[in-house]
Computed example of a mutant assay.
Amino acid sequence: MELEDSGTADAGTGVGAARATVLRRGDLASFADDHEAELLVAPLLAVERGHNILNSGHQAAFGTVFFLARPHPRPDDLTLAIFAINDWVARFVRDEPGHETGTFSKLVTDAGRLDAAGLAFRHLARREWRRLLRRRYAYSRLSPSERESFAWDQLVAIWQVIGRLVRGGVPARVVFVDAAFAPALADAGVRSVTAETEPQRPSARRRQRTDPGLLIKLQEVLAPFFDDSREPESFHNPADPALVRNLYEPLYDALSRLRAAEDKALTEKPNAQDCGGLHGTEV
């Protein structure tokens, strides 16, 4: 959605009113051609990939992005379940530890014959698929492994959007507005402002929230690939650390600074400046 000054007068006030005009997804690349357009409001996946929105200097037309709400799957959308079952299969056949369903090698060994192993695998996969369809989609209800998969999905989408802002080697400013991105850090900022403005009212104190949220989870899933003490051979694919570092090092550095700010906010008296205040978490 493109916001622009329509130049028309409001009938009641006589003041020029701002009018939002619709921009088709296929026309996103031409957004910068409108010299009066300043602000684009769009769903996350609409600008995730496939569009280079550049100015006349072949640099990113946008310098700032505001993520207004933490991404969350729709309950009636099968996309996440499809991603999840494919992720489960990929991890299962690689014999990754920690799965409640065991490992593929053990399944084949216990079956004794290949045809029996194939049938057992089909039954197991069908059971997993039905579990995925029945599960609650609230982030707080996801298992640790499901949260990790969800974090990777969101990491790719968010980083793709940020990538639209750095075309041409220009700097970008990224702001996460929704407190659900980092609940504990946001709560620390609110408590700091409350303490400064209403120190005489103990009832105004909020219960401290310890849920780290999605942004901290993004940092956690990236951290093993930036651990210099781990050998590449300890990963399922030895090339993964180099690949992840090349793709996500700037994001990881920003998230690590955010993690440090949260740790400080949770262990010390919160400071609104350290916590990002009430206007969102900025990285």
Rank of each mutant, 00 (worst) to 15 (best):
L124I: 04
A29I: 03
Q160L: 06
A272L: 07
S56I: 07
H123C: 09
V41F: 13
V221S: 04
E262M: 14
P97K: 10
T267Y: 00
R74C: 03
P183A: 02
A81D: 14
E100Q: 10
P270N: 00
P270H: 00
D87T: 14
L3V: 15
N237Q: 07
L218G: 03
A46P: 04
S145H: 08
D240V: 11
D253H: 08
E36Q: 13
R209E: 08
G280W: 02
V65N: 08
R70W: 01
T13W: 03
G26W: 06
A42P: 06
P232D: 12
L133N: 11
P199W: 02
T13R: 05
Q273C: 03
G50K: 04
A179C: 02
H236A: 13
A116K: 10
V170Q: 08
G276F: 02
Q208A: 14
E233L: 13
D87W: 12
N246F: 11
V283M: 14
W129V: 12
L132F: 05
E128F: 09
R91Q: 14
R167P: 00
V161K: 09
A90T: 10
F92C: 01
V190D: 11
L3W: 13
W159G: 05
T64E: 06
F83Q: 14
K217C: 05
R131P: 00
V170I: 12
A9I: 14
L251Y: 05
G276S: 02
A90V: 08
P73Q: 10
P75M: 03
A60S: 15
F104C: 09
V65Y: 06
W88D: 06
V166T: 15
R113H: 14
T8V: 15
S234P: 07
P199E: 02
L124Q: 14
T64W: 03
A239K: 13
H72R: 12
I158A: 14
L45F: 10
A242T: 10
R173Y: 01
G98Q: 03
A157I: 09
L214N: 03
V190F: 07
L124W: 01
D95T: 07
E249S: 15
V193A: 02
Y137H: 12
R207L: 09
T64D: 06
P183I: 00
A60F: 10
A138M: 07
A151S: 15
D263L: 15
G50D: 02
D153V: 09
G7L: 04
C275Q: 06
D211K: 07
A186P: 00
G112E: 06
L222F: 04
L119F: 12
L278G: 11
S140L: 10
N271Q: 08
Y139G: 03
T103C: 05
T281D: 00
N246G: 15
F225W: 14
G277D: 00
A265S: 12
N237G: 08
D253M: 04
R209A: 05
H279Q: 12
F66H: 15
R201W: 07
A116Y: 02
N237M: 05
E249D: 14
A120I: 01
R24L: 11
V244C: 06
F181K: 00
I216A: 13
L165Q: 07
K269F: 04
H58F: 13
E2H: 11
Q219F: 04
G57R: 13
G277F: 01
F92G: 03
T103L: 04
D263E: 14
A125R: 11
D33P: 01
V93D: 08
S145T: 07
F83R: 15
G168Y: 12
P144S: 04
P71E: 08
H35Q: 13
K106E: 15
Q200L: 12
A42F: 07
